[in-house]
Design a protein around this nucleic acid. Structure first.
Lengths: 207, 207, 207, 207
DNA sequence: CATGAATGAGACTTCATTCAT
DNA sequence: GATGAATGAAGTCTCATTCAT
């Protein structure tokens, strides 16, 4: 059973040490996500993460350069996860209206399953650190996803031809972020939010 | 001692102590704005603000409950200033298209004259403090301004009747915040940004 | 009595705050000296110094940039004190033999009254920090004192004319440092050490 | 397994394990020397030494009790090497003047071939550890070499009969250490330094 | 009202050493 | 013998806030 790991995993045979390290990182990532979401960046100390993960304080620094590095790893993980959700909703396939509705649905479903994660991951890093980190932030990734979709719809003639897709991508992400926070606070009905946003976005973008 | 209070102008004839206090606060507010904008909330210490203001460290706490209180005072000041700009553009008066354009113009003009202030003032306070502060944040004030306008246009039949004006207010503020940051980073042309945003917003909201 | 401080001190009238600060620094310096001498640089933590001085941990950093800065302040104080001892022995006045004997006597007397201080103050800073500190070290100060004396004796024709006084200054300081440590460890008689060293140095330097 | 021990040459026929161990130690010693010289004791971590040596971190502790033990092994190695240099210059053979010049030449030649090693090896161990290590330090070894030579010259009547050879040994080592550091910093000419020092030492010691 | 020295909890991080593999 | 992940005590330093003057 322990031989070969059973699955055709991407690391066919992990030596003991490497496996332990992976396991530590996994625990740290889970702990970091939990605490960043619950308490926010500044209220979470590296040692809290270590304790929550059940590893020593020093282990934290074996896996992350510093606290910010850990936070960025968290945001990237969240971005990756959301990406999977989005892909299963193949927003790309349909019309502009369907596409937008699917994308929003994916986002809200992810948020339901992972409450608070998106809000935490979208924390503006410039609030956390001076100086450029050199890393691409979730906001940018998500804005780009939208931009690409809009570009496609522009090509198919569904979206307004005079659209600046880059700017529109950021406008949409900003709107969703702020609107989502508002809806979450007011405990608005998810379906209604999706419908409302879809209507606005479609009208704004459609030819 | 109490003489001078209650007169028509609040600047006329303040007793020495009261005048000094007012003067201290003015200097502290100016220093706080400068540093919050330049360095951000977490990189600015009360001591820095006091030194920049040219007053003693203790004086800071004569005027503000704590650091967060000072930051909120800054955001409120910024909100008040923007409000003046907005009023001079009487967005209220015209059609939905004119109104939106005027409002955006007011915002961008303010941002030109006060670079970085809006971005700093819109910092999500939940990133700064856990508990509720009980104070209304700029985001909420600005979302409400938009809501009221939208409500008006709904009544005049210019805006779509099925519009959730509260939600739309937040969506717009979020879009402007994120889009503005993007445009500032990319050094986009102001007029083009205003035009692009106006077009999108009008299409989204118009009947 | 408290008025005017009684003495024609260099700070005729110290305001309360300034006096408190001075007092803190005095206590910190005394504590630092005690601990650097007893335990050495690396075994002494800033918080040990603060506790020994009876002030808060933060006060330490009000007076010293960092731990190294504190250590350097200690060495400078020791250098100043030794300087006073040396001056009262007016080594300068007499012949080369008298001069050297007086200087060594001053050094050993200071060491008797301040056991361990010279050894601690002569700690090679390059062992403590990479990078140049930009500060002149006691070793250099003391080497220079010797150099100047030798130069004088060269002029009066008492010292060998082919003497490199700079180099000789360092050789002497190195010899005293190492020889002193040896004598201290072996608990040698002070007078005998002075006589022995004087004899050697005089022979080495005399014309 | 024990076969091969006790043979004429200790290099012939070591079992695989023993050979590997020896090889590891050699690599660790070389790495330790490099880093202690370049960065100093406190700036060098066992991990750095292991990495530089290309062995695992744990291997370090198979060969050295702790970091200080490794440093002392380094100083002893340096002392052994210098000893070889000194012996090839048979300082013992000649007159006091020749002897001193030869010894200094040996030291400076070694320093040229091994820049920084003597300075690093002469680091005062009391700065590194509080308790006595029970090991004889390079300073003591080198002071003793000088003492023995002086004793011999005393017997041949070349050195002053009233000389305390132990103390003189330490004085000379201290002088060379400090003078060498000064000369190195000032990039003085080696030959001139040797000549200058020889002259001073000879005058000081000669009958 | 104003000051600025003092505070000390607590933040982040390092590193000599151990130990399971 | 060799490895390197893990450890956690200990280190240095910061900073929001208080309080005696």
């Amino acid at each position: 059973m322990s031989a070969g790991e059973g699955e055709a995993s991407d690391a066919i045979q992990l030596s003991g040490a490497a496996r332990r390290k992976r396991e530590s990182r996994r625990k740290l990532m889970a702990a970091a996500r939990k605490l960043f979401v619950e308490r926010g960046y500044h209220e979470t100390r590296p040692q809290d993460i270590s304790r929550e993960a059940g590893v020593g304080h020093g282990t934290f620094y074996l896996h992350f350069e510093d606290k910010l590095d850990c936070f960025l790893a968290f945001t990237e993980e969240a971005a990756d996860e959301l990406h999977v959700f989005v892909e299963t909703h193949h927003a790309v396939a349909g019309s502009i209206e369907e596409g937008i509705r699917e994308l929003l649905t994916a986002i809200f479903e992810y948020s339901d399953e992972n409450p608070g994660v998106l809000a935490a991951a979208l924390t503006d890093v410039s609030v956390l650190s001076t100086g450029d980190t050199g890393r691409r932030m979730p906001v940018d990734r998500w804005a780009e996803v939208w931009s690409e979709l809009l570009e496609k719809w522009k090509e198919t003639g569904e979206a307004a031809p005079d659209l600046d897709v880059r700017m529109a991508g950021y406008l949409i992400v900003g709107a969703i972020k702020q609107g989502g926070a508002y809806g979450y606070r007011r405990k608005l009905d998810r379906t209604k939010m999706i419908e409302g946003m879809t209507r606005l976005f479609v009208r704004a973008l459609k030819k």
